[in-house]
Amino acid sequence: MAELTYREALRRALDEELERDDRVFLMGEEIGRFEGSYKVTAGLWAKYGPKRVRETPISEEGFVGAGIGAAMLGLRPVVEIMTINFILVAQDMVVNHAAKIRYMFGGKVGVPMVIRTPGGAGAQLTAQHSQSLEVWFAHVPGLKVVAPSNPADAYGLLKSAIRDDDPVLFVENLVLYNVTGSVPEPEEDFTLPLGRAHVAREGTDLTIVAHSYTVRRALAVADRLAQSGFEAEVVDLRTLRPLDVDTVVESVRKTNRVLIAEEGWATYGVGAELAARIGRACFDDLDAPPERVAGAEVPMPYAKPLELAALALEDKVEAAARSLLAECGLVGSA
């Protein structure tokens, strides 16, 4: 095991897959000589050259489409979109094309492509650069959506995504890039399967479900709750489509209470989907209706106090958790 940042873990996964399979190539804005807007691809252009690490113009619709075409001919493009906000200009390529191709062509051709892109907020990047749009894509049959919360997961899931035969949206997080964690050594060929959630912390009083950066917040909140004598279980979804409902349900059956936390907007979000699933699967297990906590339903404001108020930070997640516990008559010891 090595101690790596989330950024370095991603880079190692890309490096290994480029090395392993010559059908794999990278494509995106500033990913070559500039070494990536967030430096994920640093060093790879120098190592693999301009053919394997292809710099593109600012032309998301164009180069996402080019990735699709190359994938249809059997290559395995890994396309970087500088931030998830810019994927909207390529939405037609992702939703109308990549997601549909295999099905509407009767299974005769597929799109083994990965689109990597960071989402998230918290750096005063304001309304057009602070979104968590992954649920838009998780809504669409034909796509897979992955959103790792830590370096080891980022490493194992990215390698799986690149080896997958279907289009995968791989959602990173701006605030996670510098977070460190233990990552398996290359010789282990470590991968993580898509469609499997992970119990990041065990507990008995409450389940908190989250993905991406919000998992870290949930873990911090679980520590705070422990001070009051409550043991929260934290489920890291890892992938949003396929969604591992079983792991969530198993946990809720144990804790009888569930809070779904997400960084994006709650309406029609991950929590909405999970609450419906939990409502059906755990109808007799719940001590209270599933609760949701998420970002404020406003475009992200700039001013720091406003931005902090809009984010689903630890305090807000904790307040939601305590409110849910109180609803069940549990007030805590502190």
């Binding site: 897979k144 399967p193 898509l194 469609g195 499997r196 959630a197 489509r241 396929p242 969604l243 591992d244 409902v245 079983d246 792991t247 349900v249 419906a276 699933r277 939990i278 409502g279 059906r280 699967a281």
Partner: peptide, 8 residues
């Protein structure tokens, strides 16, 4: 990959 999405 999708089998655990069947529940509910």
């Amino acid at each position: 990959q999708f089998e655990r999405m069947d529940t509910a």
